[in-house]
């Protein structure tokens, strides 16, 4: 394997890991809020979050590219704060990936939270637990498994990202060239042997992760429910 390929793998894993952490931090309160509110405001928010599921990634990438350009308010702010430009940077990839994979984290968490009965939270409240305590001591342990699902899906989906990254990240080795983009590069230049290697890695990784998730669901699905 070449250094460029190892770099691409390292970059892909780093992007997926950082994105997953950011997704959990952002997605948990969002999913909680959505699970406890009804009406058109939450419905609107839900739609926006779900948008990447149906939009071509290039559409999202196109808008993000415009937003990240050095001339926009965000681009200028970023330049002032960090001293480097946002477009075609690793940070841009993280922001793009978070938006792109948000539904994969928010949706499983939201449906898990919705299944936590209010009754239990009321009981916790009467026992002296303030809302944050209720969340940590009741909601979190009861939905632990959904966090694993959400994190796995967010991670895997980020690894599989292509269109958005190509639009906003370009193809800079060691900075924004992730596996999927490197693969595209090989194919473009007719280096099929190298392309096979990367594609194979991706297939094995994705299959292993999905197998892990499905087997767990199946095993626990058969468990006698209380």
């Amino acid at each position: 394997m070449t250094t460029a390929e190892l770099d691409a793998i390292r970059l892909t894993l780093a992007l997926a890991a950082i994105t997953t952490i950011a997704l959990l931090i952002l997605g948990t309160p969002l999913a909680w809020w959505l699970s406890r509110h009804r009406g058109s405001v939450p419905a609107m928010l839900e739609s926006v979050i779900a948008l990447p599921l149906i939009l071509p990634p290039t559409v999202l990438g196109f808008y993000l590219l415009l937003l990240f350009a050095p001339g926009t308010w965000l681009g200028r702010l970023w330049l002032q704060l960090t001293g480097s430009q946002l477009a075609f940077s690793f940070s841009a990839l993280v922001i793009g990936s978070v938006i792109y994979s948000l539904p994969f984290v928010v949706q499983p968490l939201q449906s898990a939270f919705a299944r936590v009965p209010d009754d239990l939270l009321q009981a916790a409240a009467t026992l002296g637990a303030a809302p944050r305590d209720q969340f940590l001591s009741v909601v979190l342990p009861l939905t632990r498994r959904s966090f694993i699902t959400a994190a796995s899906l967010g991670f895997a989906h980020t690894v599989g990202e292509f269109g958005v990254i190509l639009m906003i990240g370009g193809n800079i080795p060691g900075e924004t060239q992730v596996l999927s983009v490197a693969l595209y590069d090989y194919v473009e230049s007719l280096q099929f042997e190298q392309a096979h290697r990367l594609a194979g890695i991706m297939v094995v990784f994705s299959l292993a992760l999905l197998f892990f998730l499905y087997r767990r669901d199946r095993r626990d699905g058969w468990r006698v429910q209380p």
Partner: peptide, 11 residues
């Protein structure tokens, strides 16, 4: 709020 009332509640 309920968590500051010190009321036991048996449902």
């Amino acid at each position: 709020p309920p968590w500051q009332r010190r009321i036991g509640y048996v449902f």
